[in-house]
């Protein structure tokens, strides 16, 4: 568990919300409870960490609607849905929209904590990935357009000779660019460079490079 991670509970049923909050707090989690989707929307921030435990059935705005609203904002905390009776269409839709879990009440403490842990893990990984992407993107920004071109072609598996032919420059120059790229991207190997390029989608790379 990360110090910053928090369990955000959105449930209109006071007893449900209160008991869950109490139990999770006793187990050492940071917990915030919200009585409605609107209340949560009003206070959530992009740097929230942790996971969301959402009641499926709520007046005014249902769990699914909240999920959609958050998605539109680009808010990407993992969501665990809680439902009294999860029928197949609702479940499918929730998962399609990116819910990490769908639990049916009553939920046992162990199952709940297990899923919260898993959600936290996903959250952590997403943060890490995001951080990595950010790093790659920062490093990419330092590359010259030529270096970018070389990197793209190299990660596509082309040899120096082929790149030279493609870019109509000498293989020697390619080699220099390549070394520069490896240095700037802090990549130890071509494989590592490939991973970085995969994290940073080619479109973005291209726009940053060619444009």
């Amino acid at each position: 568990m990360d110090e910053n991670q928090c369990v955000y509970i959105v449930d209109d049923d006071e007893a449900m919300r209160e008991s869950m909050q109490l139990l999770l707090e006793m187990l050492g989690y940071r917990v915030q409870g919200f009585a409605s989707a609107k209340a949560f929307l009003g206070s959530c921030a992009d740097d929230d960490r942790g996971c969301l435990v959402l009641d499926m059935r709520m007046p005014e705005m249902t769990g699914l609607e909240l999920q959609q609203a958050l998605r539109q904002r680009g808010y990407d905390l993992p969501i665990i849905f809680l439902s009294g009776f999860g029928d197949v269409p609702t479940t499918v839709r929730a998962v399609q929209l990116g819910a990490v879990d769908f639990l049916e009440k009553p939920v046992s403490k162990s199952k709940l904590t297990e899923r919260i842990e898993r959600a936290f893990e996903i959250d952590r990984r997403r943060r890490d990935d995001a951080r990595a992407v950010e790093t790659v993107r920062t490093r990419c920004a330092t590359l010259t357009p030529r270096e970018q071109q070389v990197m793209t072609l190299a990660t596509q598996g082309l040899s120096n000779k082929d790149i030279a032919r493609e870019l109509e420059i000498s293989p020697r120059t390619v080699e220099t660019h390549r070394a520069k790229v490896m240095e700037k991207m802090e990549a130890d190997s071509l494989a590592m460079l490939c991973n970085m390029v995969a994290l940073c989608p080619p479109g973005e790379g291209e726009s940053a490079g060619v444009g």
């Binding site: 049923d13 007893a15 449900m16 209160e18 008991s19 869950m20 109490l22 139990l23 009294g84 009776f85 049916e104 009440k105 009553p106 939920v107 046992s108 403490k109």
Partner: peptide, 11 residues
């Protein structure tokens, strides 16, 4: 039914 049962279980 699940609602109160779950709440009771958590308490």
């Amino acid at each position: 039914l699940a609602q109160p049962l779950n709440a009771a279980a958590f308490f």
